[in-house]
Computed example of a mutant assay.
Amino acid sequence: MQKFFIYTFLFIVLFGLFGWYFSDITFFFVISLIISAILRPLTNKLNDFHLLGQHIPRWTAIILSYSAIITVLILLSFLFFPLINNQINILSELDLEGIYETIKVPISKVEIFLFKYELLENKPGLLFEEIKDTFIAAISNINVGKFISGIINTTTTVLIGFLAVAFITFFLLLENGLLRRNFLNLIPNPYFELSVATITKIEKLLSNYLTGLLLQVLAIFSLASLGLTIVGVDYALTIALFAAVANLIPYAGPLLGSTFGIIVGISTGDYESGAQLNYLIFKILAVFGVVQVTDNILLQPMIFSKSVKAHPLEIFVVIFAGAKLAGVVGMIFAIPVYTIFRVAIMEFYQGYRSYRIFKIK
């Protein structure tokens, strides 16, 4: 028994070191596991479908599942095209001289105040010119070559990651549980039953968690789009979609969503005075306030606490620990990873107390 726990501990340590050292591969594999878990029900249904008296081949069912996901993503991306086009038109018609004249007045007031109390040695009028010259110099010093090279490198990295995830996910779906069976074959017979129960419980909890996240995204998108449409904010569906996806990032997501909504509202809104601008910001904040109250009171306790059967304080600590270790990515994957280790430890501890097989020397 002691050897079993020693070997198990060594395996976990080595697995953790491997995952840390090859973090990119680990990240791709985890993403692939999640996507395969989402696509497996659809793939299985397509695979069971009869066409001309024959089952659809599994590889064809996987490709059809991929096509369905890609189609949904393309349709959702159409929501952002009008907004992007609007911003391009705004930038193309941007009057820099008008902007300079607009900000010159408040800067001049600040400059006069600083000069009055001898906090500024320059004569009034020079501060604005210095800010203007600094801004122009910063733009002119941008290295176009490095900027383009950075875009190419980023695009290449994203493309490689996308292909890696698609490749791994394809074989996870194609093998349909072969990885799980091979892992179970490595477990000694005395611990086989307990290991199967543990893995089954982990899969069920993670499935509940992913289903809950999907329901949360749909609920936030529906509430935000409805609220923003009612108060008359342009591009309500686009803002709501961004907010729903950003909400996957615990705690920081709602702030990102509301900030994006305010930026889009300000850049596309129709207002003629400061009061109208303030009213527009108030309407956007009010909508997101209602959405977040609903999310915090109804959705999150149901998803994060009940789906993984953990105390909210546990979830809070785990999320911030994930943020400390891996930033935003750590916050997103903190709960699933914690669920795996938590369930495994609890099941084996209960098995140690309940099963006689663990007491065999």
Rank of each mutant, 00 (worst) to 15 (best):
F4L: 02
F5P: 09
Y7T: 09
T8P: 04
F11D: 07
F18T: 06
T26F: 10
V30T: 10
I31F: 00
I34L: 15
I35P: 03
I35V: 13
D48W: 09
G53P: 00
I56E: 09
R58P: 01
I63N: 04
S67L: 13
I70V: 15
S77Y: 13
L79R: 14
N85T: 09
Q87Y: 06
Q87S: 05
I88V: 07
I88C: 06
E93T: 12
E93I: 05
G98R: 04
G98T: 01
P124D: 14
E129I: 14
E130C: 12
A137N: 13
I148G: 11
I148N: 14
S149P: 00
S149V: 10
T154G: 06
T154K: 11
L159P: 04
F170Y: 08
L174P: 02
L178K: 15
N185D: 15
N185Q: 12
I187C: 06
N189R: 07
E193W: 07
E193A: 15
L194Q: 10
T198P: 03
K201V: 03
E203N: 15
T211W: 04
L215E: 05
V217E: 00
V217H: 00
L223G: 02
Y235R: 01
F242W: 00
L248R: 05
P250A: 08
Y251W: 03
P254L: 00
Y271H: 07
Y271I: 05
E272D: 13
L280Q: 05
L280F: 03
K283P: 10
L285H: 09
V290M: 12
V290D: 06
L298M: 09
H311N: 08
H311V: 02
P312K: 14
I319K: 05
K324W: 01
A326N: 05
A326I: 00
P336E: 14
I340A: 13
R342L: 10
I345K: 06
E347R: 14
Y349G: 09
R356M: 07
K359P: 01
